[in-house]
Amino acid sequence: MTGRHAAPMPDSIRRFMGTTAAHPARGVVCPWCRASVQQPCVIPSSGKQPGRVHQQRMDAWAQLTACCTTCQVTPGVPCHTDGRALDNGRVHAARHAEAEVTAA
């Protein structure tokens, strides 16, 4: 055999196969730029893609998928400090860590 040839791949599968894995937070709508599920985040003023997921989208994903070990809330419940929800939908760092473990 003198060379390797790639097997043909249907376009319906090829679009899901990228060179890099998408962040699991792309499974939710971005609250900042309103990017749809599985679509990359964009900078609203310019329409350019920043190359990473917005922090607000990562917070929304963590809140939806993981328990918070800091404030002891279940998935879907906002994080809180002293009974008050964190500003702008933010979550504790421990919840991000838990979401990453859950996604792996």
Rank of each mutant, 00 (worst) to 15 (best):
G83R: 12
H5W: 13
R95C: 10
G47H: 09
L86Q: 06
A22D: 09
A103Q: 09
H96M: 12
P10C: 10
R14T: 11
T69I: 12
T102E: 08
F16S: 00
C68Q: 05
I13R: 05
S36H: 03
L86P: 03
P78C: 04
A103F: 08
S36G: 12
Q38R: 13
T20K: 09
P10V: 11
G89E: 07
D59P: 04
S36Q: 08
R95G: 08
A104W: 01
L64S: 09
S46D: 06
A104I: 02
V101R: 14
P10D: 13
Q55H: 04
T2F: 09
V42D: 02
P78Q: 06
G76E: 03
A66N: 09
D87I: 06
V37Y: 00
V73P: 09
M1D: 10
H54D: 08
E100L: 14
A97S: 15
R4M: 15
L64Y: 01
V29S: 00
D11S: 11
R95E: 09
A22P: 05
V29P: 00
P31T: 04
Q56R: 12
G51R: 02
V101T: 10
M1L: 07
D82C: 09
T19D: 03
M58T: 05
Q38Y: 11
R14W: 10
H23E: 01
P24M: 09
S12C: 10
R90H: 13
A6V: 12
G3Y: 14
L86K: 06
G51W: 01
P44I: 05
V29G: 00
P31A: 07
P31I: 04
R95I: 07
D82M: 10
A93Y: 13
T69F: 11
A6L: 14
S46E: 09
C41I: 01
C68D: 06
C41A: 02
A62T: 00
A35G: 07
C68S: 09
A22V: 07
P44E: 06
R57T: 03
R90W: 12
G18L: 11
L86D: 04
N88A: 04
A85M: 00
P78N: 06
G83W: 10
A21E: 13
R15I: 05
E100S: 11
T65S: 13
R52Q: 11
A104T: 02
C33D: 14
I13L: 07
A97N: 13
Q63T: 13
V37W: 00
Q38K: 10
A103S: 13
D11P: 11
A6P: 12
A25P: 04
G3I: 12
T19G: 03
C71H: 01
R4Q: 15
A104E: 03
R26Y: 08
S45K: 13
F16Y: 03
R15C: 03
C67R: 12
A99W: 02
D82I: 05
R4N: 15
Q38M: 14
W61F: 11
T65P: 05
E98V: 14
T102S: 08
T70W: 12
